[in-house]
């Protein structure tokens, strides 16, 4: 397996806070890589740097062998890196179907101002997408009228609509009701496996990590403290003490 994304020596400090203090990481083609670590460790910062939302003060990032540092989010998206957000970024005054349709239109590059967004070709693809995510029942609801689980899925669906090769997900299950969590993750993993997307996801729920990640990276104070297969990393005594012990309470709830 070759590295799809490789980051070297990423550094970024906000005032005194070191959000990235020399990050080296390779994401292998086809793997599911989980990122865990306490709040403020720099997990979201890593995603923001990889997607062009923040610029590191030092270091380099290559995607598929091409340097992407300094590119705008738009260019990076065009190369095939998608992302979802900790706070779902949906068009709140549009329906879920319209949200998906806009994503489909964005990918297919159809921007004629004279044909409606909801033309048959776009509508069909958007409907199929929502169907895969189990969102068909809420397709005609406004995005701001959804529960958190559906909002998270819709947010990820919009990223998947772009058919990325690499998808970065920021806490895909945070805020999702405990009872729905495993169902949401299973849906997600099924779709991503079908689409053969390489995925990096920030996660606080160790049950989710243990079940779905191929590898785990442990973040702490802007550095990678440990990296390896879930079995080894999650049972490492130091990781258990320093990271899992510090996780927010909600993450310790055993899934039912």
């Amino acid at each position: 397996m070759s590295a799809l994304l490789s980051a070297r020596g990423l550094k970024l400090a906000f005032g005194g806070l070191k959000a990235a203090d020399g990050i080296d990481l390779d994401v292998m083609d086809g793997e599911f890589l989980a990122i865990i670590g306490p709040n403020g460790a720099g997990k979201t910062t890593f995603i923001n740097m990889t997607t062009g939302y923040l610029k590191p003060q030092a270091g380099s990032i290559e995607f598929d062998g091409k340097p992407i540092l300094g590119m705008s989010p738009r260019k990076i998206v065009a190369l095939g890196i998608g992302r979802s957000f900790q706070l779902p970024q949906l068009f709140t005054e549009h329906t879920v179907l319209e949200n998906a349709a806009l994503a489909v239109a964005a990918r297919s590059g159809i921007w004629s101002p004279f044909a409606p967004l909801m033309r048959p070709s776009i509508r069909q693809e958007a409907e199929a997408l929502l169907d895969r995510f189990g969102l068909s029942p809420v397709a005609d609801r406004r995005a701001d009228a959804l529960n958190e689980g559906a909002r998270k899925l819709a947010d990820i669906a919009m990223a998947v609509a772009l058919r990325p090769r690499l998808l970065l997900m920021d806490e895909p299950t945070s805020g999702v009701a405990a009872a729905d969590k495993m169902a949401v993750v299973e849906t997600l993993v099924r779709v991503l496996r079908e689409s053969r997307v390489t995925a990096v996801f920030v996660e606080h729920d160790m049950e989710v990590v243990a079940r779905f990640a191929d590898r785990v990276a442990v973040w702490g104070q802007g550095r990678i403290m440990a990296l390896g297969d879930p079995q080894t990393v999650l049972n490492d005594p130091q990781v258990r003490r320093d990271v899992i012990g510090e996780l927010p309470q909600e993450a310790l709830h055993a899934p039912t």
């Binding site: 998206v77 949906l90 005054e93 349709a101």
Partner: peptide
């Protein structure tokens, strides 16, 4: 059209537009 619908997207979630490319 997609142009007009994206216009409404500027009002509610411009960040997402950028991340849709």
């Amino acid at each position: 059209s997609p142009m007009g619908q994206a216009l409404a997207g500027i009002k509610t979630r411009e960040t997402r537009l950028e991340f849709l490319g």
